[in-house]
Design a protein around this nucleic acid. Structure first.
Length: 367
RNA sequence: GGGCCGGUAGCGUAGCCUGGUUCAUCGCGCGUCCUUGUCACGGACGAGAUCGCGGGUUCGAAUCCCGUCCGGCCCG
């Protein structure tokens, strides 16, 4: 049911192009998964996502647990039906919220106690509970419950949280009942090579249909991400997709693909859009509120095929963002997602034609 | 002709009565930067007024007094 086939490989790097099959259809890799944290990619409809060639979405267990709740989602037939998205979905386990909502929680080997960021109510999340919720939500790919320590944490804590993550991965696997969902394990270990090595081997040995690398871009110095990938990727089974969690800067994506990563997710394109920023191939990351766009009469990118660039000029987009018009958020979100999903398309095409290095260079400096 | 209210950065305002660590508040706007498994259409920083104008009182005035200009309103 969860076949992963490698379609082509790049001879000049570890990049590969593949296809992963799920109950809601196939998606091709390397892929980028827009974040639909609370059951929606902020500001866009499912149809618009399809127009952007989005093949798979990410959603989030922690947020859906608080509202509307797992029981409810199960009662309405699962998230796909509820949000009217019939393509694959991956749910994060809530592990990242253990990190990002750090002031509101307490972690033990048993699990995590959270204060809801919504109303302060107390919630408990364990590997078993996370898997149960993810089965109620019904995503095609579900994630093991992990602990994502801060990037700057010391060796002892990185080791402790890695071991806890390993234990939780085993418990996640054991708790899993449904057979129509693929459980991915998560590698941790901070910035420490021996821990990453140990974690890569441990998670690989669980023989899961996919493997994720977590705990990067969480505050550690930038060069460590590539180092982690160089340490980790060679140890992973080649016939399983590798998912680098939370990564979305174009330069990071091409770097990670060259190391053999197949899947990405990131809030960057959608969040940047809502904060008035966007990417261009020429100049990288830009801010639409910059005064130079006050009377701009050209689109963000003249030769971009997205709906936004086909129809609107920068002065209008700037106006919308400054006026806090929702349409501004939508239009920049469309452009940014188009930019990233188009990048993934270029990568896939290039790998098939042995031209990956060209794409690598094109995006190497875009953050 | 008489009376009242108001005149502080691009805009809207606080302070004025009880004059001095407020030579100036806050919001919007403006500018720059930040943003990587989304708490966050969010966050940080910055530029910008000498307080309508003139004079007086005082050691010291946006703050009190006089005059004057501008805007609005009211009564003749």
């Amino acid at each position: 049911m969860f076949e992963f086939r490698i379609l082509s490989s790049d001879p000049s790097s570890n990049a590969r192009c593949g296809i992963f099959s799920t109950p809601h259809g196939d998606f091709t890799t390397p892929c980028f998964m827009p974040c639909g944290t609370k059951g929606a990619v902020k500001t866009l409809t499912p149809d618009e996502l399809k127009t952007l060639n989005c093949e798979i979405l990410l959603s989030n267990t922690y947020h859906l647990m608080l509202r509307p709740g797992g029981d409810f989602l199960k009662s309405v037939g699962g998230l796909h039906k509820w949000m009217a998205w019939d393509r694959p979905i991956l749910t994060d386990s809530g592990g990242f919220q253990v990190f990002s909502l750090a002031t509101l929680r307490k972690i033990t080997d048993e699990g995590v106690t959270f204060q809801s960021h919504i109303d302060g109510s107390t919630h408990h999340l364990t590997p078993e509970k996370s898997i149960e919720l993810q089965e109620q939500i019904g995503a095609d790919i579900i994630m093991a419950f992990d602990e994502c320590p801060p990037g700057g944490c010391d060796y002892d804590y990185a080791e402790k949280s890695m071991k806890r993550t390993h234990d939780w991965a085993k418990r996640s696997l054991k708790a899993k009942k449904r057979t129509d969902q693929a459980l991915f394990g998560i590698i941790q270990g901070g910035i420490y090579k021996d821990l990453r090595t140990e974690s890569a081997k441990f998670i690989s040995d669980l023989n899961l249909p996919g493997i994720a690398i977590g705990g990067v871009a969480v505050g550690e110095p930038k060069p460590y991400m590539q180092e982690v990938l160089e340490t980790t990727c060679p140890l992973l089974p080649k016939d399983r997709p590798r998912y680098l969690m939370g990564i979305g800067e174009p330069s990071d994506i091409v770097m990670a693909v060259s190391q053999g990563i197949d899947m990405f997710d990131c809030v960057l394109p959608t969040r940047l859009a809502r904060h008035g920023s966007f990417w261009t191939h020429e100049t990288g990351r830009e801010t639409i509120t910059a005064s130079k766009y006050t009377s701009g009469t050209k689109p963000i990118e003249e030769n971009c095929n997205c709906y936004t660039c086909k129809n609107f000029v920068t002065s209008y987009l700037r106006h919308l963002i400054i006026e806090k018009e929702i349409l501004g958020h939508r239009l920049l979100t469309i452009h940014n997602l188009h930019f990233l999903l188009n990048l993934m398309g270029e990568i896939k095409e290039a790998i098939g034609k042995n031209e990956f290095q060209k794409v690598f260079k094109k995006y190497a400096l875009i953050q």
